[in-house]
């Protein structure tokens, strides 16, 4: 019926408000992001374990010098394909401050699976002081806290260029066309062969940027795989249920003249 169609149009339109908002927010003054065909994107996408593990290596050897990752515990590493022994070994390499002990003193001990990844600075002000006044944000949620998500992280990390296209960046800031405002306080953190990948993958800037972006996406949304697989089952169930209920509705309403 005409009215039904109208209602559907209206429903679509109201939803549309939300959708337009999303796209409106994505528009910024920075350069259009490079788009990557991530292993984890799409309705069934899963994290590429090898890539995420490489990304963890980049994080540990590069990013962790300044950035914290405070919502991730060593036990979580088992979710990205490390065995319990590997995760324990990774944790044990770190000294964790614990205490106070019976004498009231703080002490350090080897890290355990239950420990969160320790921050490089004791507090936010120390972090600022060591980085020229700019606070290196915690990276646990960075992939969800930036418009563009992992594409933004990848574009930013691989997007530093010598040619600033006439942009004047002040002292202590560096040109990057993907950063809103084009000048940011973080110098290009990675360079070709800065690290040596455990699995032998050539450590190019592009590769490292991709890997660490994938890792940070996992860090921000560790339940994504569980979410998508549960969602698939729920949708199938709801569609069958809708079909059955629609048929049942027709059957019952057929009793009316």
């Amino acid at each position: 019926m005409m009215i039904n169609r109208s209602i559907k149009v209206l429903a679509g339109a109201v939803l549309g408000i939300g959708l337009m908002t999303g796209s409106a927010l994505a528009a910024g003054d920075a350069k259009e992001l490079k788009s990557v065909d991530w292993h984890h994107s799409g309705p069934f996408g899963t994290y590429d374990r090898a890539q995420v593990q490489r990304g963890f290596q980049v994080f540990t050897e590069v990013c962790a010098a300044c950035h914290s990752l405070k919502y991730i515990a060593y036990r979580n590493l088992m979710e990205i394909g490390f065995s319990e022994e590997q995760a324990k070994a990774i944790a044990a390499e770190k000294d964790i401050e614990d205490g106070p002990n019976a004498d009231g003193d703080m002490f350090t001990r080897a890290g355990r699976l239950s420990d969160k990844i320790p921050s490089p600075f004791p507090n936010d002000n120390a972090a600022k002081a060591s980085n020229g006044g700019a606070y290196p944000p915690d990276l646990s949620l960075i992939a969800k806290a930036r418009v563009g998500g992992e594409d933004y992280l990848y574009s930013l990390l691989s997007g530093y260029s010598e040619d600033s296209h006439g942009h004047e960046c002040g002292t202590g800031t560096y040109y990057n066309p993907y950063f809103p405002g084009s000048c940011l306080a973080m110098p290009s953190p990675i360079a070709d062969d800065l690290i040596e990948y455990v699995d032998g993958t050539p450590a190019t800037v592009d590769q490292m940027s991709k890997d660490v972006s994938a890792f940070l996406t996992w860090a921000a949304e560790p339940k994504m795989e569980e979410r998508k697989s549960m969602g698939f089952k729920v949708i199938i169930f709801l569609l069958i249920m809708s079909g059955l209920l629609y048929a049942a509705k027709r059957r019952i309403w057929a009793r009316l003249h």
Partner: peptide, 9 residues
């Protein structure tokens, strides 16, 4: 999608 990235800061 209906939220805002800034709320993860």
């Amino acid at each position: 999608y209906l939220g805002h990235p800034d709320n993860y800061i």
